[in-house]
Design a protein around this nucleic acid. Sequence first.
DNA 1: AGTATAGTTTCACTAAGATCGAACTATGAT
DNA 2: ATCATAGTTCGATCTTAGTGAAACTATACT
Lengths: 228, 228
Amino acid sequence: MIEGPNISGIAALIGDPARANMLTALMSGKALTASELALEGGVMAPTASSHLQKLVAGGLITVRKQGRHKYYTLAEDDIAELLERLMGVAARTGQMRVRTGPKDPALRRARACYGHLAGNMGVQMLEAMLRDGMVAGHAGALEIMPLGLEKMRALGVEIEGLKLPVCKPCLDWSERKNHLGGQLGAAVFKRLIELGWMRRRPDSRVVAFSAEGLRQFEIHFPKDGKIL
Amino acid sequence: MIEGPNISGIAALIGDPARANMLTALMSGKALTASELALEGGVMAPTASSHLQKLVAGGLITVRKQGRHKYYTLAEDDIAELLERLMGVAARTGQMRVRTGPKDPALRRARACYGHLAGNMGVQMLEAMLRDGMVAGHAGALEIMPLGLEKMRALGVEIEGLKLPVCKPCLDWSERKNHLGGQLGAAVFKRLIELGWMRRRPDSRVVAFSAEGLRQFEIHFPKDGKIL
DNA sequence: AGTATAGTTTCACTAAGATCGAACTATGAT
DNA sequence: ATCATAGTTCGATCTTAGTGAAACTATACT
């Protein structure tokens, strides 16, 4: 009869529009305050407070108090992966938003996904890394290869002190392919911003490439027909 | 501000206990009738009817009418994967059911996951297949190798006419590792039952191995220390 | 034809929970 | 000390959606 874990509780938490919007905002990987999340959720402060308590109690997000602010983040990687997967199903079944924002194409092109690069560019990057043998896949897990380590060092990516699993695939809702996730994904993301190749749009998950950044990106992670 | 697909609709559909139980029941891969699903959901027929309509409208399940019965199944593979992932999060955050059923250990050991073998045994099988080079992983996708084809034929698995992707990994909520999914996973599952190595428990996702089946399984998909 | 079963529709009831104004606490700034 | 801002608690209101009894349609069996 009734078997296995109780999924309805978790799903119900995500099932409220205000909470779903808050969680989606947290997918950017940035820690957000209660007020910011109230804005994202489209509700007043008391309502947001109540929602946030429920999300914390449900283990979906965690809080860190800093001065008079409270910073919220997604609790674990698996939450981000779950949300990304939900977006995949929602996109496939045509449950896009009523008013499609102008940022939608930009969002599909490049965006932050819980601290790593997602969208068309993110998928292209992982595909290039696989093609060049920088990483290799095993049963849905990803492993970094010596060539990858070398390349990452050359790019100046901080790879020391990363926790296992260093890299893992993350299914992309807009591309329906994997992009690079895990600690390595986050480290690369950080480095690409440091290098000035791309920049986060404020208050958005959208990531914008500079002209030079795009050029460099295409050299290091070419679309196909690897020449390097 | 508000970006990306609208996840709250899908999540809300799964967020109701009755609907969640129905969906969990459908994870067995069997097509179930409205009455059976009413029983699984713990609600009366009219209520179930209403729920099923919503699930169909939301694209989570599909109906097939046959005589005076209506058979419901999960709409797509990605729904099953989403549910399995939800179970993973639910299990991690300790949202197990209030009254843990006696079948819980059996469920963790071997169960049907939308038509393929999941649980400890399922994970063991995929790991053995990877170790022996029967399948290989690429960026979260799985590919069958010549050796795998040969072995599958030897076992009598029906591998002709499978649609791509033939096999793919599916994250297991109880093991937090991947098991073999996709068309190949379903074909192997079917064959193992045909061979009498295992049998489905009625009205449950639990799969029980026979003594001989277990022996054979351990020979073909050994835990580790491949000898074959 | 008559009866049984599968599933749906209608409807009224109920309960859960989302919402926010107002008052409150806590921290920081001047 | 005083004021401003961040966040919470309380309480009242309101909406939404789940629920099943009763009556209905549709298919199947005999």
